[in-house]
């Protein structure tokens, strides 16, 4: 009888629903994604997975320590860490921009550690209090489209970008990319507030295109949407790899030039880390030659440890870097944001 069938079907559906809910609860309780055990090293990484994963794998191989990796955007993870402060979940934080580590250090969520392997790193690329250590760097460069910019026109200074002939043709990422924020802060430091403001206002008046993301910048320049872009050195290599017609300038290299700002990637240990010894081992490992070779080679980063082979990228010693401490940049941050509201 139809009716009976209908009722049974209805009953089954209800039973199935209850089963599903029970299943859900059991998944929560014992499922494959149960909370990580204390013996697993939890790493929150803002570095690209393709860059950090091989190094992590090698670490696991060498030490037998099990690692759980959560890849995300540096600032997103930092926010997460700040929210988790009452019950920290991560042991290690890897940031693509050291300023974020400085923010976290000021938020009191980092545990200081001065690894022996960091000794050959110049002081501006590690925390003076040992809260974080630079693991590689990226220089602020001018990227240009070879089809749109003739050789003789290639600017040599960031100041040239304010030139009227580049009106509407220059792109930069907004301050959502913290490297832009650092760069602006560095300008304030080096040029002084009023000059820096005047320069940036010139750029903005010249229809500087402020994009959400650095990848928008290099892809935009590569595709010819823009002639010039201010971005980070690895992006030049990424664009080359993608077969795009781009050239690069490390700006302001002249004698009086301010140099190119180098933003370090950094590693930090979280306060309250459940696996402190393993965390320290990881920091030591990441500064080792083996790991450095992977991190630097894979992602076109600039090695910060003196004497490391830079591969295809220009080593720190080959250009003039703008020297400023991350602490100073962090001090300037609030002021910078106020100065340049459009970014």
């Amino acid at each position: 009888m139809l009716k009976t069938v209908e009722t049974t079907a209805g009953r089954n559906a209800t039973r199935r629903m209850i089963l599903l809910i029970l299943a859900w609860m059991s998944v929560i309780a014992l499922g494959p994604s149960a909370p990580t055990t204390a013996s697993e090293l939890v790493i929150y990484s803002g570095r690209k997975e393709s860059a950090i994963k091989p190094a992590v794998d090698l670490f696991e191989q060498r030490t037998g320590v099990k690692v759980v990796l959560k890849t995300g955007k540096t600032s997103g993870l930092a926010n997460e860490i700040l929210q988790e402060r009452r019950r920290p979940r991560a042991d290690i934080f890897i940031a693509t921009e050291a300023g974020v580590c400085e923010v976290l250090a000021r938020g009191g969520v980092l545990d200081p550690y001065a690894p022996p392997g960091a000794r050959p790193i110049p002081p501006e690329y590690k925390s003076s209090k040992g809260f974080w250590t630079g693991i590689s760097g990226r220089a602020r460069v001018i990227l240009y489209n070879k089809g749109l910019v003739r050789n003789e026109e290639v600017p040599s200074s960031v100041l040239d970008l304010a030139d009227a002939k580049w009106r509407g043709k220059v792109a930069i990422a907004g301050t959502l990319e913290r490297t832009t924020l650092s760069w602006l802060s560095a300008l304030v430091q080096v040029m002084g507030e009023s000059k820096a403001k005047a320069y940036v206002d010139d750029l903005v008046r010249g229809s500087l295109k402020i994009l959400p993301d650095n990848s928008d910048v290099w892809r935009g320049v590569g595709s010819g949407e823009f002639a010039l872009g201010l971005t980070n050195s690895p992006n030049y290599h990424l664009a080359l790899k993608a077969g795009l017609p781009v050239g690069v300038v490390y700006p302001d290299q002249g004698q009086k030039g301010m140099g190119s700002l180098v933003n370090p990637n950094a590693v930090a240990i979280l306060k309250g880390a459940k696996n402190l010894p393993e965390a320290r081992r990881f920091v030591d490992f990441i500064l080792s030659r083996e790991a450095q070779a992977i991190l630097v080679g894979h992602a076109f980063e600039i090695p910060l440890v003196r004497g490391m082979d830079a591969g295809q990228v220009r080593p720190l010693s080959s250009f003039k870097a703008l020297t400023i401490s991350q602490e100073r940049l962090a001090d300037l941050e609030e002021r910078t944001i106020k100065l340049f509201p459009g970014f």
């Binding site: 009888m1 139809l2 009716k3 009976t4 209908e6 009722t7």
Partner: peptide, 20 residues
């Protein structure tokens, strides 16, 4: 539900033969 199923609705606990 059909007319028949409507009528059968209140006879859920009856045995099949009686219900029919």
């Amino acid at each position: 539900l059909t007319a028949r199923e409507n009528v059968a609705f209140g006879l859920r606990n009856w045995n099949a033969e009686r219900r029919r």
